[in-house]
Design a protein around this nucleic acid. Structure first.
Lengths: 152, 152
DNA sequence: AACCCTATTGTATAAATATGCATAGATGAA
DNA sequence: TTCATCTATGCATATTTATACAATAGGGTT
């Protein structure tokens, strides 16, 4: 498929930025980012990426990328456009996770492009909080966001 | 049991010496060495030892010891250092006050440990804003937080 | 002793993960 | 075009792994 490599890149990014404890959980996040796949495919992707499931210090399990080591053939390329890592909603709020340091930049893009559905954003280092305008649905915002910030 | 540590040691040794692909397989080897246990116990042992299951280059899976890092001198788990001052809720939001400068540090601890109940945090200098996941109650969050960050 | 607490384990089962098989689209050769 | 082939994927399921629960054993304490 045309978006397999994008998906792999998204997985890479997600796993380095967040603590994910199961494939099902990772699947949710990927779906939230607009990818369409099943657990079976994810299992294969993780095998491909050599992602390991490791017990964490806190008693939970975490998926970890093969530490650093771009495995050689990687070369540059990678981290181009997008710092966006995940997107979640809760009521009239949306929280986006970004790569460290990207939050402010992305937030200002959002501010610029979504005045109709978002009344304001606040960004930290790797997190953006968005307050949705009254009456606007989560779906609407998600779709608009994905249109503006492509390259997922 | 009196031989748990022996068993753990045996597991350590086995895994560094051989390519083991499943707990069942490892179980066989341990039994062959005279140990008496079940897969359930083995699963717990592996968790304890922080053994990871990793996809190998040959398309198979291998259990690997947390390379180097004995992780033994772990000392206490809890974050004894405590900058947390107060915690209040409002709808799907929680606001924590911290000692000046502590907000970001504590927020990142929260990010790391409460992905199930908090979808994101934003921290200033002495204030943390947390957005609760939909469906999660204030009480739940408060209890979990207190477990992770004890002693107000 | 009687009681309580903690650690360890097995059993049974839930949860999570891997994969055999079938299918669909893509590519290319004849 | 038509056939062969290859990749990517879903579905269903086998396999594997984690865990809730109950039982047991070993300390301590009173």
């Amino acid at each position: 498929m045309k978006n397999k490599s994008e998906r792999l890149e998204a997985i890479r990014t997600l796993l380095t930025a967040e603590q994910v404890g199961s494939q099902e959980e990772l699947l949710q996040k990927l779906v939230a980012l607009g990818f369409d796949l099943t657990q079976a495919t994810l299992s294969r992707d993780l095998k491909l990426l050599k992602v390991m499931k490791a017990p964490g210090n806190d008693g939970r399990y975490v998926y970890v990328m093969p530490n650093s080591v771009p495995s050689a053939p990687d070369a540059g390329e990678a981290f181009s456009i997008n710092g966006l890592v995940s997107l979640e909603f809760s009521g009239n709020l949306a929280v986006a996770k970004t790569r460290p340091g990207f939050a402010n930049g992305i937030a200002s893009i959002i501010d610029e492009h979504l005045p109709q559905s978002i009344i304001g954003t606040i960004a930290g280092d790797d997190t953006i909080l968005m307050v949705l305008k009254e009456g606007v649905t989560q779906i609407e915002v998600k779709n608009t966001l994905l249109k503006i910030i492509p390259a997922f």
